[in-house]
């Protein structure tokens, strides 16, 4: 997890287009300036970052479903529930499951676990639209390779 540049997924553990399921891994940083304010003497990962980590996991799933032709922009977060503190150094398992593919939108069900214990969950809706620029798409494809996106599903940039 690279909080400072808002990259919250370290690695894709598995991604199944057929089953509409993505599992990713991420390690919560041991040190981060965020803990100076959140909170002194009680460092925990902010809930908004947990939501974003779920959104990024769902984003990888949707990129696979759209074959990197369209980008998913987070539009709605439904009833997010933060069930437990997430502390520095925690290894997270992030899961996103496809609930529905609509016309121009996708809905997913997501959760975050640590040591098999549910930490938070939410459903999310994304609008999908063509990449706003070729540079953006190339960046996303490079990131896909970095996180271990199944190579056969990653297009050539350009």
């Amino acid at each position: 997890m690279q909080i400072e540049i808002f990259i919250l997924v370290d690695r894709i553990r598995s991604l199944s287009i057929e089953n509409g399921l993505a599992q990713c891994e991420s390690a919560v940083p041991v040190d981060s300036s965020i803990y100076l304010g959140h909170f002194p003497g009680h460092p925990i990962l902010p809930g908004v970052l947990l939501i974003e980590s779920m959104a990024q996991t769902a984003g990888w799933l949707i990129l696979g479903l759209t074959k990197f032709e369209r980008f998913p922009f987070l539009s709605i977060v439904h009833e997010a529930k933060m069930r437990d503190f997430v502390t520095p150094g925690t290894q997270l398992l992030l899961e996103a499951r496809l609930l529905h593919e609509g016309s121009g939108f996708y809905k997913t069900s997501n959760r975050v676990l640590a040591d098999g214990k549910l930490k938070c969950e939410a459903e999310t809706t994304f609008r999908v639209m063509p990449f706003p620029s070729p540079t953006f798409r190339e960046h996303v494809i490079a990131q896909a390779r970095r996180v271990g996106f199944p190579p056969e599903l990653v297009p050539n940039a350009g």
Partner: peptide
């Protein structure tokens, strides 16, 4: 309307 479309689709 995205929420409505989801519910109608389902």
């Amino acid at each position: 309307f995205l929420d409505i479309a989801f519910a109608i689709d389902k």
